[in-house]
Amino acid sequence: MTDSLFDKLGGEPAVDVAVDIFYRKVLSDESISHFFDDTDMDEQRAKQKSFLTMVFGGPHEYTGKDMREAHAPLVEKGLDDSHFDAVAGHLQATLDELGVPEDIAGEVMTIAASTRDDVLNR
């Protein structure tokens, strides 16, 4: 049996480490941080964790519909491709920082890219 992507990345402990690195990058980026001004940090971190679990290939309950509903208010505030690209950049930087090999990081980025249309409600 071959290891799943989630196992190769280190499973839930890896997500726990990644989420703080990732969320700190997102919060520090002034081009996107204003989208989170009204959100509770605990809830937001929990959401980032679910998102990372999904793109790490882990067990998750996200559906395209959830993605659309969650981001619809942000799209109204102007969320567009440039913001999606910024977040994707922070995800890539997080994977780099964790020393994830290029081929595995590539798989993660492919899953993340597949959410673009749902996130931007297209």
Partner: peptide, 12 residues
């Protein structure tokens, strides 16, 4: 301050 502390490395 909560956001600044978290960004400075304090665990949530």
């Amino acid at each position: 301050a909560r956001q600044k502390s978290y960004l400075a490395g304090a665990a949530m």
